[in-house]
Every structure is written in structure tokens, then in C-alpha cells.
Design a protein around this nucleic acid. Structure first.
Lengths: 147, 147
DNA sequence: TTGACATTGACAGCACACTGACTATCTGTA
DNA sequence: TACAGATAGTCAGTGTGCTGTCAATGTCAA
């Protein structure tokens, strides 16, 4: 008989939901959600990407990115600027406030990780990362554009 | 520097998205989504639960269950019946069609599992299940009601 | 130069997950 | 018995993620 409780998809969804909820608790005071945090963290690594570039780097759908940017822009963490060469595109830049939040939010992420993975050893965590990377599958590699 | 790519939450979300998409592909011909399949599979195990019982068994929010049941009812896979003792509650029953689909959909789930975990050995898969159970955290155990 | 095709971002529509509020009903206790 | 508090289910609102469509713009070959 089929047992959904053993299904990898089911377990992934429950583990993901718990991770999401814990992260959400940690960053709630700053009015952010986990996907918003993830988008910010890509910008801390490299500022000024277009929406399509962010979409590829973060493996997030183009239309989802649009909404995330809307909300982060409304909260004053980033801004859309016209692309100097391509009038179709926007470049997304952190505001001063967005840059300042890096340290605080990174600390929140650290606490979340601690709480989520409290039941796993350092080695198990490494193993888990490796296996999740495999499940994640091949992904497009983002190249920093030359322009 | 903080690297989101190593974050367990981020990896979980991407692995989950891929698993969801693959499962979705397999069951698309039957007009179902992965959460709908999960709900059905709980009913194959035990028919006639209330929405709250399904919610606890599946770790799905009460209000989310409502929508899932709406859609499955609309597609003729299950039906709400009045609870004989409790006029607030509904008991959820599979229709004949819902029962008939078990074999077909279980086969889809098998193919999905194959595709999702193609890069992992049997042992790794076991290890992954164990670790995801730990991440999932404590969960309320569902007791079959005596009534 | 023009016309075909691709790309970017906006938008609408759907599923789903959560919160919090609400109604109807049940239950335990005074 | 009456009432306070608990419980079942719904609804509205928000956020996320997908598909599909559209207008504006860019690119390239004829």
C-alpha cells in the first residue's frame, strides 16, 4: 500500500514549511519574508542586476521576481533604475537601508539555521546539503554580464 | 560573507520546487496537483475523516484543507457528508472515481520518485528520509477516533 | 530599411499556505 | 439548566510561485 509519509516530496514539503516558518519568525520584526530575504542576499553579493538576471541567479520565476521587487521597493530596501543601454530592462539596486540591513539579517539567518538543524550533526548537515544539491538538479549558471 | 546558496532553507525550497514540478508533470493528465494527491493518499489509507482530522494527519492548515477539498469535490474525487453526531463537522469520503484512481496515481508517484531521486543511491535515499524527518520536527500524532 | 523573431517586464488568473476573524455548534461545569 | 469556553468550518487578506498574454523594445537577416 502506498504510504505518503515516506514520500520524498511530502517530506520535503514539510521540512521546507518548518524552515520557512522559523526563518519567518526571525525576520518578522523587519517586515520581511524568506523569499524577500533570499532576493536581498543575491543583491548583497552583486548589486545592479536586471530582473531576468536575478530570476536566473535565484531560480525564481520572472513574474514572481516582479512582485518581490514591488514589495521590497515599497519597503524602501531597493529601487528600480532604468538600464542605461536597454530601455526594456531595469537594474535593481539596494538602497542605503537595504545595504545596512545585511549584518542584522545575516545574524537572523544564522539563528534560523541553528534552530532548524538542531537535531543534525555538522557532518550530517554537510551530507544533507550535498544531497539537496543533487535533488535540486542541474541549474543554469549565471555569468556576470560584461556590460 | 553570507552565501544564500549554502542555506538549508534555500536548498530545501529549490529541491521541493523541483519535486513538485516533476510530480505535477506526472499527474497533470488527471488534473491534479501534488497537494491534492497527498490529500487523496490519506483518504486511501482511511476514508471518512473530518477536515480537522485530515488537517492534523497531513500537517496542512485547516483553511488550506478547505480549498483542497473544494477542488477535489468539484472534480468528483471525493464528497463532503454531514457528520452523524456533530452538526458542525463534515466527514470526507472518496467517491467511486476517487477510489479507482489509487492504482494509477500510485504508479505516477513511483515514476516521480524515480525521476526526482535519480542521482541518489538506495542508502542515500534512506539517509535523506531520516534527516528530513528530523528537520520536519515533532508533529502531532493522529489517533483514529473511536466514534 | 524593413519585417520576423526574441526578450523584458507588466499583468491576470490559478493553486496553495498562512493569519486572524467570524458563525455555528458542542461540551463541561456551576 | 444555563452559560463560558472550546471546536469545526468558512471567509478575507497577504505572500509566493506558476502559466499565459501583451506591449514595448531589441536584434538580425533579407
Amino acid at each position: 500500500m502506498y504510504n505518503i509519509e515516506n514520500s520524498i516530496g511530502f517530506l520535503l514539503s514539510k521540512a521546507y514549511q518548518r524552515a520557512w516558518a522559523i526563518m519567518r519568525e526571525e525576520i518578522e520584526p523587519y517586515d520581511l519574508t524568506p523569499p524577500q530575504f533570499a532576493l536581498l542576499s543575491f543583491l548583497w553579493q552583486q548589486d545592479g542586476m536586471t530582473q531576468v538576471e536575478l530570476s536566473e541567479k535565484g531560480q525564481i520565476d520572472r513574474s514572481t521576481i516582479g512582485g518581490l521587487i514591488d514589495r521590497l521597493e515599497r519597503n524602501g530596501l531597493l529601487e528600480r533604475r532604468q538600464h542605461p543601454q536597454d530601455r526594456r530592462a531595469h537594474k535593481i539596486y539596494l538602497t542605503e537601508h537595504g545595504k545596512e540591513m545585511e549584518e542584522t539579517l545575516t545574524a537572523c539567518a544564522g539563528r534560523s539555521l541553528q534552530r532548524i538543524t538542531a537535531g543534525l550533526s555538522e557532518n550530517e548537515l554537510k551530507e544533507l546539503r550535498r544531497m539537496l544539491e543533487i535533488l535540486r538538479g542541474e541549474r543554469r549558471v549565471y555569468e556576470i554580464p560584461s556590460c
